[in-house]
Design a protein around this nucleic acid. Structure first.
Lengths: 116, 116
DNA sequence: CAAACGTGTAACTCATCGGTTACGCTTCAC
DNA sequence: GTGAAGCGTAACCGATGAGTTACACGTTTG
């Protein structure tokens, strides 16, 4: 949990996650979309990887990253735990999870759509 | 958003939020539950306050803190944005079930008398 | 009023973080 | 084989964060 919240805490890393939401991207492609240096992005990717939020697959000399949302379940559960007593119904639209106890393996987002 | 994710990133602060979920607590009461010094807790409270996650009301020489979940909406929305493409339907389904089933759980944390 | 209580703030230390440049390793192209 | 492409790591640095002790300030209480 600490890994996830820590990873989420940085705007660059949040942006990376959003980028990976729609398509898998290589390290270089990701780095190109930021003003900071490539090594800096590389380390952000490392943080995300260690938090389990992304998975990297070697593809020749490239390294393709894909999103892994599973670790977010715990965070979502924590959020739900906090918001429940208040306007629960209201948040339902935005929130979306109470999982917290279910699914844990499911999707794995292994779409090999790298048509870059 | 950065404020919230930053605030959430610390385990002590997350714990504080959970503590405030069920009842309002004074700074001292909160500090007593942690091994760290009181000033340290005080600064955690400041971070939470600046993130809008807690509200403090003066009560004599005490300062009572209450939870404010509103800022979490944005985070919840962001989370949803990330998890939607994956098992969104699934999550939503589980959520609704959960909501109807628990239905505010009996005890209700009725201490929410101090309105905004 | 004076003493004790409850809290926040200031000043300081130490560890961690995010960024940069330099470098090394593996893979593709010729 | 040689050189370039693509990435990650190492070393270094300034900024930030969390913890501590010392202190100031308002509030109760005797």
């Amino acid at each position: 949990m600490d890994d996830v919240t820590g990873a989420i805490a940085d705007p660059v890393r949040r942006e990376i996650l959003l980028m990976l939401r729609d398509e898998a991207l290589s390290a270089g492609q990701i780095a190109d979309r930021f003003a900071i240096s490539r090594p800096a992005v590389s380390r952000h990717l490392r943080v995300l990887r260690e938090a389990g939020l992304v998975r990297d697959t070697a593809d020749g000399r490239r390294r393709v990253y894909t999103l892994v949302t599973t670790p977010l379940d715990e965070l979502a559960g924590w959020l739900g735990q906090l918001m429940r007593p208040a306007g629960w119904q209201h948040h339902l639209d935005a929130l979306e999870t109470e999982v917290y106890r279910t699914r844990r393996e499911r999707h794995t987002a292994a779409e090999n759509k790298e048509s870059a």
